[in-house]
C-alpha cells in the first residue's frame, strides 16, 4: 500500500472505529468491571466485592427463570416465523402474476415499529374490548373474555404470536431471495428423475438453502434474545415473571432498582450466552471474508 493510501485508509476507518469503541467496547469493559462491585445508585455504594455477585446470581432462582424464558422466547417465535415465512416464500416463488405487490404487502409487519406492535397486540388481547376475545367467543372456543396477557399459561404464547407476526416477513424475504438463486436445472433434473414435490423440497431445495437458513434462524434468535421493545409494553416481564427475559431483568435491576452491580453481572453472563450463539452465526456466514 502506498504511503498516501495508508494515510487515507487510517483517516477513513478511524472515525468509525473510535465511535464503535466509545459505544461498544468502553461500556462492555465498564460493565464487566461493575459486575465485581456492589455499585448501587440509591444506597450510594460502590465497593469491590469480588465474585460475590456471581455467587448470589447462581443461587438466585430468578436467574433460572430468566434463562429458560429467554431461551423459550428466543427460539419459539423463530420456529413459528420460519415455518410461516418459508411457506410465504414458496408460495410467492410459484405465483407469477402480482407477486411484487403481494410481496410488498406481506412485508408490512416487518416495518411496523415494534412499539406499535406491542400496543396493537395488547389491544387485540384486551379483556374488555379485544378482538381476539370477540372472535374466540363467537366461535364458541371461550365462554367469557380472557385476560390473555395476565394469565401465566397464555401470556408467553401471546407474546410469541406478536414476535412471529413481526418476524415472518424477514424469513420470507431472505428465503425467497434464496429460492430465486437456485438454478432451474437442478430442479428440472429432479423432476426428470421423478421426484415429487415433497422430495424436491427435502432433497433439493432445503440443502441449497442451508446457509441462508442458518443465518436467518440464528440472527432471529439473537434479536429475540435482545428484544425489549415488544415485551416491555406488553407484559413488563409479568405475570409473576412468566415472561421475564434477561433484557427485562437487567432493565429492572439497573433502572428501576438502580442496582447496577448486580445488573452488570446478569449482563455479563447473558453476553456469554449470546457470544456462543454469535459464534454459530459467524461460522454459518463462513467466517472471514464474506458479507453477512
Amino acid at each position: 500500500m502506498a504511503r498516501r493510501d495508508r494515510g487515507f485508509a487510517l483517516a477513513t476507518i478511524l472515525p468509525a472505529l473510535l465511535v464503535l469503541a466509545a459505544i461498544y467496547v468502553y461500556p462492555l469493559l465498564r460493565t464487566i468491571g461493575y459486575s465485581f462491585t456492589d455499585y448501587d445508585l440509591i444506597n450510594r455504594t460502590n465497593h469491590f466485592v469480588g465474585f460475590a455477585n456471581y455467587v448470589s446470581l447462581f443461587s438466585d432462582p430468578t436467574f433460572y427463570t430468566a434463562l429458560i424464558n429467554t431461551l423459550a422466547l428466543g427460539i419459539a417465535p423463530m420456529l413459528g416465523a420460519f415455518l410461516l415465512g418459508f411457506t410465504e416464500a414458496l408460495v410467492l416463488n410459484e405465483i407469477t402474476a402480482g407477486s411484487g405487490i403481494l410481496r410488498g404487502l406481506v412485508l408490512l409487519p416487518w416495518v411496523v415499529p415494534q412499539v406499535v406492535i406491542a400496543f396493537l397486540f395488547q389491544f387485540m388481547y384486551n379483556p374488555t374490548v379485544g378482538v381476539f376475545n370477540v372472535i374466540l367467543k363467537d366461535l364458541g372456543i371461550i365462554r367469557t373474555f380472557q385476560p390473555w396477557l395476565a394469565h401465566p399459561a397464555t401470556a408467553p404464547a401471546a407474546v410469541v404470536l406478536a414476535y412471529v407476526w413481526n418476524e415472518t416477513p424477514f424469513f420470507m424475504l431472505m428465503l425467497l431471495a434464496g429460492l430465486q438463486s437456485i438454478p432451474n436445472e437442478i430442479i428440472e433434473a429432479a423432476v426428470v428423475d421423478g421426484a415429487g414435490w415433497w422430495q424436491r423440497l427435502w432433497f433439493v431445495t432445503l440443502p441449497q438453502l442451508r446457509r441462508i437458513i442458518a443465518i436467518t434462524t440464528i440472527l432471529t434468535v439473537i434479536w429475540n434474545f435482545n428484544n425489549f421493545t415488544i415485551i416491555w409494553p406488553m407484559t413488563e416481564g409479568g405475570p409473576a415473571n412468566w415472561t421475564l427475559t434477561f433484557s427485562v431483568w437487567v432493565y429492572r435491576q439497573a433502572f428501576q432498582d438502580f442496582n447496577l452491580g448486580y445488573a452488570a453481572t446478569i449482563g455479563v453472563l447473558w453476553l456469554g450466552l449470546l457470544l456462543v450463539v454469535t459464534g454459530f452465526y459467524l461460522r454459518a456466514i463462513g467466517g472471514r471474508d464474506e458479507a453477512p
Binding site: N226, V250, A254, W270, L275
Partner: peptide, 16 residues
C-alpha cells in the same frame, strides 16, 4: 459484526 449482536440493555448500564 459481533458488536451488532450485543444487547443494548447491557451497553446501556455503563453509558447511562
Amino acid at each position: 459484526l459481533a458488536m451488532q449482536m450485543f444487547p443494548s440493555t447491557v451497553l446501556l448500564i455503563a453509558l447511562y
